[in-house]
Design a protein around this nucleic acid. Structure first.
Lengths: 230, 230
DNA sequence: CGATGTATTGATGTGGATCAAAATAAGTGG
DNA sequence: CCACTTATTTTGATCCACATCAATACATCG
């Protein structure tokens, strides 16, 4: 199969990972990959296992998470098409994945094994620069999240999560952005309990800022969330 | 001044940033730098300003921190000789520092401007690999800290901070590792209040796990801290 | 229609922040 | 060496945001 053909979505051409490469170079890189599928709710990379595989997300939605020594599942960033998974595999020394990745919805990915992606990086040093930029974007995410955990209340964090996800996975619809997400996922992302999340969302719904149905949330006025942090 | 001469401490030769480079290459890189001093309590890089300067810490102690939009100061990792400061300056696009760095004790650093360090990275691609490894180590730190914030109690976090700092800045002495650190710094690192920190430390002192004097802490049995998390 | 996953709502508990004050230790200058 | 200032630390009393526990309601589907 030739993954670099017309079936590759636009978002890939604009992927941060492929930034600054010529179309010919992009084709060469994509041609060295294999296309793979991961059904929703399956794990793509496993925290603690050898980082041997590198992926570029073509379609679907995934997220990073990890488990703490005391068994708590910690949710990290969401990944959308154009983003990479398993970035640890590009390091010069063999390493282990810091976190796991799971397909939240059915995912199509491009896959390279470690030595292939490392060879490509040697051939196209630009890829290495891009990997560094991506690593920095993770650091940025963690710094933001760290600050939020320390200095913001539960409603504030939930509002931040909601407006962040809206930009990432919101679909324009009549009467506001539509997010297909459960309360549990929201609570996990904001690091609050399911109960607290439900209470805050109910309040916002009463005020007409959002509408919530099972597994789906309609965001009417994102800005106003921040004016009602009780 | 020739910074690459015999006055460069051993720890620099073992710096993660210079890993895998030949002595001749290291000399070339260090010779392109200037030596600079920062007195204790001065700021080296400023969050939000253009990332134009890159530093390698030779002597002293520094730490990253940043201020949240609502004015709270958030303490991040400590830096010891051999570690870099201002890493954002190596990115291919001009960027801004994500965080600030301050000298905790008097610091001696090597300094490169952005274009110099970028030229060196083009000449020695190994530097770029090393920069990526360092970025990953920051991600690792954030992931650990994130997990701790979410899933561990105040005494647990303080115990973690203490054992981490012991490895980093502890000096062997009769009757346990000696750390020169204040309660305020410990509290900041563990993200608890000064009062909570003081109470926990008092308890540990009563049990003989530590000894605390003004600005100084003696760690007798690090392991036992984790057995007394009340 | 049960069965199962998802969401709401109320009652209760608590870890650690916050507020207030005093004790201790370390300079500093006369 | 002492009086005085200033930084660090301790200790007690109070409070509150959020977790936790318990129960029920609602949706969706085979």
């Amino acid at each position: 199969m030739a993954p670099g053909d017309s079936t590759v979505p636009i978002s890939i051409q604009e992927s941060l990972f492929l930034r600054g490469l010529s179309p010919a170079e992009v084709t060469a890189i994509l041609n060295a990959s294999m296309r793979r599928q991961f059904p929703a709710r399956t794990t793509i990379t496993h925290q603690g296992t050898r980082a041997d595989d590198f992926y570029l997300l073509l379609e679907g939605r995934a997220r990073y998470f990890f488990e703490t020594p005391n068994g708590k599942k910690v949710l990290l960033m969401w990944m959308v098409p154009g983003e990479i998974l398993g970035g640890m595999s590009v390091l010069d020394r063999p390493s282990r994945y810091l976190a796991s990745t799971e397909a939240v919805k059915d995912c199509t990915v491009l896959w390279w094994n470690r030595s292939t992606i490392r060879d490509l990086m040697r051939e196209f040093p630009r890829l290495l620069e891009n990997a560094l930029s991506i690593a920095v974007s993770y650091i940025d995410w963690f710094a933001e999240t760290h600050a939020a955990l320390i200095s913001r209340s539960a409603p504030e964090r939930l509002a931040l999560v909601l407006s962040g996800l809206a930009r990432l996975i919101g679909k324009q619809a009549s009467g506001g952005l539509l997010l297909d997400i459960t309360n549990e996922e929201l609570a996990g992302a904001a690091n609050i309990t399911l109960y607290t999340a439900s209470r805050i969302l109910s309040r916002w719904q009463k005020k007409g800022f959002i509408r919530k149905t099972r597994g789906m949330l309609q965001l009417r006025s994102p800005e106003r969330l921040f004016l009602d942090l009780g």
